[in-house]
Design a protein around this nucleic acid. Sequence first.
DNA 1: AAATAATGCAACCGCAGAGAC
DNA 2: GGTCTCTGCGGTTGCATTATT
Length: 219
Amino acid sequence: MEKREGKSQVKRGLWKPEEDMILRSYVETYGEGNWADISQRSGLKRGGKSCRLRWKNYLRPNIKRGGMSPEEEDLIIRMHKLLGNRWSLIAGRLPGRTDNEVKNYWNTHLNKKCESRKRKADELKGKTQDIDTSTKDKQCVSQSLMASTEVIDRGVEEANTGKREDSIVTTSTWMEGTNGFGYGYGYGIASPLAFSDYATTVFDDLQSSFAFADLFPLL
DNA sequence: AAATAATGCAACCGCAGAGAC
DNA sequence: GGTCTCTGCGGTTGCATTATT
């Protein structure tokens, strides 16, 4: 199989425009698939895998190039929280984006961003651990907690009443999932964190809590 | 202007799952 | 049930470009 693609004969490295043209016309003639036969049929000196990747990531119609919009960025962050490194699943929710692109974008931009956010949150947590939380914070957290409860309750109700027929998630697994992902509000509902712990995470994640509920049918 | 370091992204690699035989 | 082949996925590498010294 792959091993058949002898390293000596197979061309590697960046694709040239003329190679793209050949690949494009091959797919137009024979359709997607049968990548293993491509070097015989098209004359391209590329391996099947390489052709498949080139087509999928760059030549396929409706590929969106250029920077990510803030909406896309936000969705990637939220989906990554939810799914982890399941790049193809995440990319599936971003029309025109490929798993490779999403993965690269995460590794080069968002990973750093999220790490620095987490660092800030940890610093804040250190500061708030031993001091009494201000009245204002208490109010904010209280509001956030209520909002989160509402979101969860709504999701649970919709699942139970069959309003979300496409969801395969039950009340209990959803709660379990919430805990599993370690969301502040998830813990807040199921087994409340210490007040200061909750306060450090709730604002970053509150926005996501609504999105999480929106993503409910995907699970 | 040249050298070096950092960054971003295209492409490759190894592995696993699915289907055909 | 075992083997072979194809396909897709996630992790990693290599290189071109850009920034910094």
